[in-house]
Amino acid sequence: MAGIEIATKQDLIEMEERLIREMRKSNQSGEEPKRLLKSYQVKNLLKISPGTLQNLRVNGTLPFTRVGGIIYYKYEDIMKIFEQAKEKIKAGQ
């Protein structure tokens, strides 16, 4: 199927490291993480393509809310995904 991307274990580890770096930058600047993020913010934060973000929505991995034509994601949901991925990686080792 066109447009489907598979995330490897290394991809998840790299994504987690990028997210941690971004969170540390945010904490150092004194800003509190935003509670709701738009699609472009999630793509930039996770360094993923629009197709990957769509796959995360379609397969139910990343919950979202659509208001009009704008899709919003909860910051907490993104963090839950990372925690789950981290646990899977630990269990596989």
Rank of each mutant, 00 (worst) to 15 (best):
D77G: 12
M23A: 15
Q54I: 04
Q41S: 13
G3I: 00
T61I: 06
Y73M: 09
D77Q: 14
S49R: 00
R35L: 08
G51C: 03
L53D: 00
K90V: 04
R18F: 14
P33M: 06
I71A: 02
S26M: 08
K34L: 13
G60D: 06
Y72N: 01
I6M: 12
L62H: 05
I81E: 07
Y40H: 09
K47M: 12
K74W: 11
Q28L: 10
Y72W: 06
L53A: 00
L37C: 06
I13S: 09
I71F: 03
E14F: 10
L19N: 09
K88L: 11
F64C: 04
Y75Q: 03
L19M: 12
T61S: 09
K43G: 03
I71S: 01
K43I: 04
I4T: 05
F64H: 05
D11A: 05
P50R: 00
I89T: 12
R57W: 13
I6F: 15
N55T: 11
L46K: 07
K88S: 08
K88Y: 10
I70T: 03
A2H: 08
K25N: 13
A2Q: 09
S26P: 06
K9Q: 07
K9S: 08
M23N: 15
Q41M: 13
E76Q: 11
A2G: 01
M1T: 09
M79N: 14
K86P: 12
I20K: 09
K74G: 14
T8W: 05
E32L: 10
L45A: 12
V42D: 04
I6Y: 06
V67T: 07
G51D: 11
G3F: 00
G30H: 04
L12F: 14
Y40M: 03
K80D: 15
R35Q: 12
E83N: 07
Q10P: 14
E5M: 07
P33V: 06
M1S: 08
E87C: 04
M15D: 01
M1G: 13
V42Y: 07
S49C: 00
R57K: 11
K74Q: 15
K34Q: 14
N55Q: 14
K9G: 10
E5T: 05
K34I: 10
K25P: 08
I81S: 05
D11V: 06
R35T: 10
N55K: 15
A7F: 15
I13D: 07
E83T: 13
R18A: 12
L36H: 14
R24M: 11
Q93A: 01
E87L: 10
Q28Y: 15
S26E: 08
R21P: 09
N44R: 03
F64R: 01
S29R: 06
N27Y: 13
L53F: 02
R66H: 01
G30I: 02
Q84W: 15
V58H: 02
F82H: 05
V67D: 08
T52I: 15
V42S: 02
R18C: 13
D11T: 05
G92Q: 12
Y40Q: 01
G69R: 00
D11G: 08
K47E: 12
T65Y: 07
G30Y: 03
Q54H: 02
M15G: 01
K74V: 13
E16F: 15
N55W: 11
G30F: 07
I78Y: 04
R24G: 05
E31P: 09
T65C: 08
